[in-house]
C-alpha cells in the first residue's frame, strides 16, 4: 500500500490553514469560568505570558497571583482543590517542573487533588536558553504517579483539552502554546479525549507519531512526501500519560518504520513511550527519534534554534525518505 495518504480529521485543510487563535487556553478557560463557578485561576507572576489574563479580567475575584513563588503556587492550588475548587495554575514549564516538583508529586498527585498545571514555553518555543526551555518536563511529569500529562498541538487541541481536563477530576500537567496559536485541526471533526491518540492521516509506508506542535510538522512532511508517492500515516498523541499504547501498536503493525517527533529530549518522552510499547508487545520496527538532544540548548531566535535542532518538517521529511529509500 503505497498510494499517498489521505487526510482524515483535518477536514478542509485549506479552510483552516493559516488561521490562528489568540490565547486559546485563556478563551476556553473564560468559557468554562462562566459555566463553572468552582474554577479558579492562579499564576506566579506570569499571567500575561501564560494566556490566563482573559480569565483574570473576567473573574478577578477568582484569580490569585502569588508572585514569583512556584512552590507556593502549586501548594495554594492544592489547598483550593481541597476546598472544592478546580484550580488552573500557570507558570513556565521549567519552573513548574524543576522548582515545584515535590509539590506536584505530593500535594497534587499523591493527594489526588483536582489541580491543573498549565506550563508555558514547552521545549524550543523560546530563545531564552536553558533557563526557560522546558526540554525534559514531559519525562519528569510522566514519572509522577497518577498525573495526567498532555502536550497539545494547536489552538483546537488546546481549547478542547482545556474543557476535557476541567471535566476530569484529578491532577493534570498540560503544556501550553500561547499567544497567537495556529489552527491545524478542524474543530468540527477533531475530538480531544484524555488518553486517546488520533489518527490524523492514513498511510502504509511509514508511521509518524507526534505530540505537541511537532504533530503539525509531521502532517506537513507527510503531505510533502505524499506528492512523491510515499504514504506516511500520522498519529497524534496529545496525552503522554495515560498513553494510548493500543493506537501506537496498531499503527506500527501496519508500517515498516516508525518515526517519533516531539518538542522534547528524545529520552523519557514520546520516543521512549513508543519504544517501550513496541518491545513490550514483541514488535520490532526501525525507530527514528526526532526531538532534542541530551544537552542544554543555547539562546537564539526560535526559528534558528528549531532549524538547528531539527524540529522542522524538512527534518521529518528527510527521515521519511531515508527510511523509505
Amino acid at each position: 500500500m503505497s498510494e499517498p495518504g489521505r487526510t482524515l480529521a483535518m477536514g478542509e485543510a485549506e479552510r483552516v490553514a493559516g488561521h490562528s487563535v489568540d490565547a486559546p487556553f485563556g478563551r476556553a478557560l473564560v468559557e468554562l469560568g462562566h459555566a463553572r463557578p468552582d474554577i479558579v485561576g492562579l499564576t506566579a507572576d506570569l499571567g500575561k505570558y501564560t494566556d490566563i489574563h482573559p480569565f483574570r479580567d473576567a473573574f478577578p475575584e477568582r484569580f490569585f497571583n502569588v508572585g514569583m513563588a512556584e512552590q507556593n503556587l502549586v501548594a495554594v492550588s492544592a489547598g483550593l482543590a481541597r476546598a472544592g475548587k478546580t484550580p488552573f495554575c500557570t507558570t513556565y514549564g521549567v519552573f513548574a517542573t524543576r522548582r515545584a516538583y515535590d509539590y506536584i508529586a505530593i500535594a497534587c498527585a499523591h493527594s489526588r487533588v483536582n489541580v491543573k498545571i498549565i506550563a508555558g514555553l514547552p521545549g524550543l518555543t523560546t530563545g531564552y536558553g536553558g533557563t526557560h526551555q522546558a526540554i525534559e518536563d514531559l519525562a519528569l511529569m510522566r514519572m509522577v504517579p497518577g498525573l495526567v500529562v498532555i502536550d497539545p498541538c494547536d489552538a483546537t487541541d488546546i481549547m478542547q483539552a482545556t474543557h476535557a481536563i476541567a471535566a476530569y477530576d484529578g491532577p493534570v500537567y498540560m503544556r501550553l502554546l500561547r499567544a497567537s496559536v495556529p489552527v491545524i485541526l478542524d474543530a468540527a471533526q477533531y475530538r480531544f479525549a484524555i488518553g486517546e491518540a488520533r489518527r490524523l492521516r492514513q498511510g502504509g509506508d511509514v508511521a509518524l507519531i507526534g505530540t505537541g506542535f511537532m504533530t503539525g510538522r509531521a502532517l506537513q512532511a507527510a503531505e510533502a512526501v505524499g506528492r512523491d508517492g510515499i504514504a506516511a500515516a500520522v498519529l497524534h498523541v496529545p496525552t503522554l500519560k495515560p498513553f494510548d499504547a493500543d493506537a501506537v501498536a496498531e499503527l506500527a503493525s501496519q508500517v515498516r518504520c516508525v518515526i517519533t517527533v516531539e518538542n522534547h529530549v528524545v529520552t523519557g518522552g514520546l520516543a521512549s513511550l513508543v519504544a517501550e510499547t513496541l518491545f513490550e508487545r514483541g514488535m520490532t520496527r526501525p525507530l527514528v527519534r526526532i526531538g532534542l538532544p541530551d544537552r542544554f540548548i543555547e539562546c537564539g531566535s526560535v526559528g534558528f534554534l528549531q532549524e538547528k535542532y531539527g524540529l522542522t518538517a524538512e527534518r521529518i521529511e528527510q527521515a521519511i525518505r531515508a527510511a523509505c529509500g
Binding site: 479558579v40 490569585f64 507556593n72 492544592a78 489547598g79 483550593l80 476546598a83 515535590d102 499523591h110
Partner: peptide, 19 residues
C-alpha cells in the same frame, strides 16, 4: 493534608482559606 515533606502545609492552608 499529607504532611512530612516539610514546607507543604502553610501554602495548602492558604489555598483552603481562600476557597
Amino acid at each position: 493534608v499529607i504532611g512530612g515533606s516539610l514546607g507543604h502545609g502553610l501554602g495548602q492552608g492558604i489555598g483552603m482559606a481562600l476557597g
